[in-house]
Computed example of a mutant assay.
Amino acid sequence: SVKKGQIVRVDKEKYLNSINYLSVGHPPFYKGLDYIYEDRGEVLDIRIFETGEYALIAWVGIPTPPAWLPTYMLIKSDKLDYERI
């Protein structure tokens, strides 16, 4: 289980086979989301919804809003040295 403040990445295979990805309707081989697999994000919040446990993830240095993702597809990562502005 992930914790608030933890640094994570998204498991690409689990995400691409999830309803979260399929519901967005991206074209095949879409590269716009590669940062969620390659870069690391910080868990800002954790909530339990009817569909399971989700974490609110903010990616460091990526100009995009935070996103809610199921915790089963998150991979714990090394701590980052940065200051949130």
Rank of each mutant, 00 (worst) to 15 (best):
S1Y: 02
S1E: 02
V2P: 07
V2M: 09
K3E: 05
K3C: 06
K4Y: 01
G5M: 13
G5E: 10
Q6H: 09
Q6R: 10
R9N: 15
R9F: 09
V10R: 05
D11K: 15
D11Q: 12
D11G: 08
K12R: 15
K12P: 11
E13V: 02
E13A: 06
E13M: 03
K14I: 03
K14A: 12
L16E: 15
S18K: 12
N20H: 12
Y21D: 12
Y21N: 14
Y21M: 09
Y21W: 15
Y21R: 13
Y21Q: 13
L22R: 15
S23L: 04
V24I: 14
G25L: 07
H26G: 09
P27M: 12
P28H: 12
P28W: 02
P28F: 09
F29N: 13
F29V: 00
F29T: 10
Y30A: 15
Y30E: 14
G32N: 14
G32H: 10
L33R: 06
Y35V: 02
Y35D: 04
I36Y: 01
I36L: 07
Y37R: 08
Y37A: 01
D39F: 00
D39T: 02
R40E: 04
G41P: 03
G41W: 00
G41V: 04
G41Q: 01
G41H: 07
V43E: 10
V43R: 13
L44E: 13
D45L: 04
D45S: 14
D45Q: 12
D45T: 08
I46E: 08
I46P: 05
R47I: 00
R47E: 03
F49P: 02
E50K: 12
E50P: 02
T51R: 12
T51N: 11
G52M: 05
E53I: 01
E53Y: 01
Y54A: 01
Y54T: 03
Y54W: 07
A55W: 12
A55P: 04
L56M: 09
L56S: 12
L56R: 15
L56N: 15
I57Y: 10
I57K: 11
I57W: 07
I57Q: 10
V60Y: 04
G61M: 07
I62P: 00
I62M: 00
P63S: 01
T64L: 00
P65L: 08
P65D: 13
P65C: 02
W68G: 13
W68P: 11
W68D: 13
L69H: 11
L69Q: 08
P70L: 14
P70G: 10
T71K: 12
T71E: 04
T71W: 06
Y72P: 04
M73P: 01
L74P: 06
L74T: 11
L74I: 09
K76V: 04
K76N: 13
S77P: 00
S77K: 02
S77F: 01
S77D: 15
S77T: 05
S77E: 14
S77I: 01
D78H: 03
K79W: 03
L80A: 02
D81E: 11
Y82G: 06
Y82K: 12
E83R: 09
R84T: 00
R84V: 00
R84C: 02
R84G: 06
I85F: 08
I85H: 09
I85C: 07
